[in-house]
Design a binder for these strands. Structure first.
Length: 320
DNA sequence: AATTCGATCAACCGCCCAGAA
DNA sequence: CTTCTGGGCGGTTGATCGAAT
C-alpha cells in the first residue's frame, strides 16, 4: 500500500466519532444518477498484492462514499440482508459482495452501538477472551451492538495494553512471571529429556509408552483464570435477530466450534463425540444442569441448540 | 508552523466451513 | 462421496488523526 492518494472520500474529516453519517430512514435514495466515485479504485488491494475474492474488474475499493452507503442501506431496507454476492448488482453498487456485507455489519447496521466501551464491556471482553481466545464473533455475540471487528480493534489497541500494564500476558491471561516460570521449566524439562534420551540411546534402551514429557513430572500450568462470579450465558444471539433477514441466520450455529489455543483449559467437561462442554467455564453450576450431552444426541435435528455451549476438540487437543 | 510518531479503525485478504448439486 | 458455491471469520494493512517535538 502506501502509494495510494489519500482519497478516502470521508464524508467529514472531523475527528468526531467515525460514524459520521447515518442515512436517514427516509432517504430511499431514488436518485438514479448516482455516479459512484472510482477515484480510489485499487489503491489498497493493488499494493496488498492479493487477488480479489470476487468480481475484480470494475469494483470500487477503499472507503465507502455516502452515495454507496445510501444505496446499500436502501437496498437492505427493502430486501433484507443476505445473498451478498448478488446484492451489489441488484443494489447498483460497484462493490464486492463481501465488501457490502462488511460495510453493513460493521458500520451501517441500525442496531450498532457507538461510542466508547464501558468498563463492564471491557470486563466481559477480557473474560470471554480468556475463555474463547480470538473468537471475536463469539465475543461480539455477548455484546449487543458491538461488532467483531470493533472488538478486535479495541482489543488490539486498548485491552492488550491494559493487560500488559497489569503484568498479564494478553494471550494466556496469566501473569508474566508465571508464564516465564512455566516456560523455564518446560525448557529445563526438554533439555533434561533430551539428555535422558541420548543416554538411553547409549544404553540401547528406549523409553516405553509414555513420552518423556509425561514421565517427568511437569508442573501443570496453572489453570486459566476462571471467573466464578461471571455467569456468561453464551447463547449467541443472532446479530440481526430483531431485523429479520432472508437467508442469513442459519450460519451462526457453527460459531462455537473451536477456540484458539490460548484461553480454555481447566474446568471443561467432555460432551459426546469428542467435544468440550463450556458450561462449567461459563459459570454454570451443577444445579443448572449441563444439557450438552443430551443435546448432542439431538444435534442432527437441532444443530442450533447443541452448539450453544459445546465445541468440538481441535486436532490434537486434549482435555487437560 | 512544520514534521514526526504513535494510536486508531475501516477495509481488505485468504482461508475455512456448511450446504447444495 | 466429491465438487462447487456462498458466506463468515480472523489476521493484516494502510490512511488518517492527534499529540509530541
Amino acid at each position: 500500500m502506501g502509494g495510494g492518494p489519500p482519497s478516502a472520500p470521508s464524508p467529514s474529516p472531523s475527528p468526531s466519532p467515525p460514524l459520521i453519517y447515518i442515512p436517514s430512514s427516509s432517504s430511499s435514495s431514488t436518485s438514479s444518477n448516482l455516479s459512484l466515485s472510482l477515484s480510489h479504485t485499487s489503491t489498497t488491494a493493488a499494493v496488498m498484492g492479493r487477488s480479489p475474492c470476487c468480481e475484480k474488474a470494475h469494483t470500487n475499493k477503499g472507503a465507502w462514499t455516502k452515495e454507496e452507503d445510501e444505496r446499500l442501506v436502501s437496498y437492505i431496507r427493502g430486501h433484507g440482508e443476505g445473498c451478498w454476492r448478488s446484492l451489489p448488482k441488484a443494489a447498483g453498487l460497484l462493490r464486492c459482495g463481501k465488501s457490502c456485507r462488511l460495510r453493513w455489519i460493521n458500520y451501517l447496521r441500525p442496531d450498532l452501538k457507538r461510542g466508547n466501551f464501558t468498563d463492564h464491556e471491557d470486563d466481559i471482553i477480557i473474560k470471554l477472551h480468556a475463555l474463547l481466545g480470538n473468537k471475536w464473533s463469539l465475543i461480539a455475540g455477548r455484546l449487543p451492538g458491538r461488532t467483531d471487528n470493533e472488538i478486535k480493534n479495541y482489543w488490539n489497541t486498548h485491552i492488550k495494553r491494559k493487560l500488559l500494564s497489569r503484568g498479564l500476558d494478553p494471550q494466556t491471561h496469566r501473569p508474566f512471571a508465571a508464564v516465564a516460570a512455566v516456560d523455564a521449566s518446560v525448557t529445563a524439562i526438554k533439555v533434561s529429556a533430551a539428555a535422558a534420551e541420548s543416554s538411553a540411546e547409549v544404553d540401547g534402551q528406549s523409553s516405553s509408552g509414555m513420552s518423556t514429557d509425561d514421565q517427568l513430572e511437569t508442573p501443570p500450568p496453572p489453570p486459566p483464570e476462571r471467573c466464578p462470579d461471571l455467569n456468561l450465558d453464551l447463547s449467541i444471539s443472532l446479530p440481526s435477530s430483531n431485523s429479520s433477514t432472508n437467508c442469513d441466520n442459519h450460519h451462526h450455529h457453527h460459531h462455537i466450534k473451536a477456540s484458539s489455543g490460548s484461553g480454555g483449559g481447566g474446568g471443561v467437561a467432555m460432551g459426546g463425540g469428542g467435544g468440550v462442554c463450556l458450561c462449567y467455564n461459563l459459570g454454570f453450576g451443577r444445579s443448572e444442569g449441563c444439557i450438552c450431552q443430551i443435546m448432542t444426541s439431538n444435534a442432527s435435528t437441532n444443530p442450533h441448540v447443541i452448539n450453544r455451549y459445546y465445541r468440538p476438540l481441535e486436532d490434537g487437543q486434549h482435555i487437560g
